[in-house]
């Protein structure tokens, strides 16, 4: 079972690698969106410092959102989703493997890029730790919640727009606690509460999201 699970992650990583560019595109989009803000609101350092946390988090959230619609779509189109459903492991584990692979190809690269953007946005030096920890805990939650939305809209007309409408409201709690962790750290307060909230959301979604997404995928496979 563990072997199949790891092979699934490996398969998705290989696919992402051979097709190339998925992570790079997400990072490029992330950097582009963030760099729009200094152009939009003006380059004054004190202004940038104040909006840094929010801008970086919102841009990361949008990059994840943008990459979600391919999570199951390609597998549905070439029929491999039917094969995955026939595997001897539960469909929810297949979903979990795909969500982990999605995080490794988008969430993790975004997290690693974030400190660099913090530098561009004049983020306060005390806040980098909170930004990194927050994104490490928050972006897997985004991938998992996104898996539900992607599974619900796979094979649906105008699925991409619908996916955004469904998933964005569910992303808001992650955004709120992610940003407030960074802001608390920048002002010298303890970030424990925010980090614990982010961990709680991750632990909750890691249980609920694969099951809900597996139910939804079964609809597409009928």
């Amino acid at each position: 079972m563990t072997h199949t699970f790891l092979m699934l992650i490996r398969r998705d990583l290989l696919l992402a690698h051979r097709q190339g560019g998925a992570s790079l595109l997400a990072i490029a989009f992330f950097v582009l969106v963030v760099s729009l803000f200094p152009l939009g609101v003006g380059p004054a350092p004190e202004m940038l410092e104040r909006i840094a946390a929010g801008t970086i988090w919102v841009a990361a959230l949008l990059s994840v959102l943008l990459s979600l619609d391919r999570m199951f779509q390609a597998d549905l189109e070439d029929g491999s989703l039917d094969q995955l459903a026939l595997l001897p492991i539960p469909l929810s584990l297949v979903v979990l493997a795909k969500a982990i692979a999605h995080w490794l190809t988008t969430g993790l690269p975004l997290t690693l890029t974030a400190p660099l953007l913090g530098l561009l946005m004049q983020l306060s030096p005390d806040a980098y730790g909170a930004l990194l920890i927050g994104m490490l805990l928050g972006t897997p939650t985004l991938s998992l919640i996104g898996a539900i939305g992607a599974a619900l809209t796979v094979g649906v007309r105008r699925g991409g727009v619908l996916l955004t409408l469904i998933v964005t409201p569910l992303y808001i709690p992650v955004l709120i606690f992610g940003v407030s962790a960074v802001e608390a750290a920048a002002q010298g307060f303890s970030t424990t509460a925010h980090v614990l909230f982010l961990s709680a959301m991750l632990s909750g979604t890691i249980v609920i999201a694969p099951i809900a997404a597996a139910w939804s995928l079964k609809l597409a496979l009928d």
């Binding site: 619900l152 809209t153 619908l162 409408l165 469904i166 409201p169 609920i208 809900a212 939804s216 009928d222």
Partner: peptide
Amino acid sequence: FIYLGYMALWQAFDDQTKAARAAAILALV
């Protein structure tokens, strides 16, 4: 927004039974 997403999901499927089940999962989430 969750209400609106729920209503949009109902509209997105031609098959009413599929729409019902997808919308039900979203309502629970």
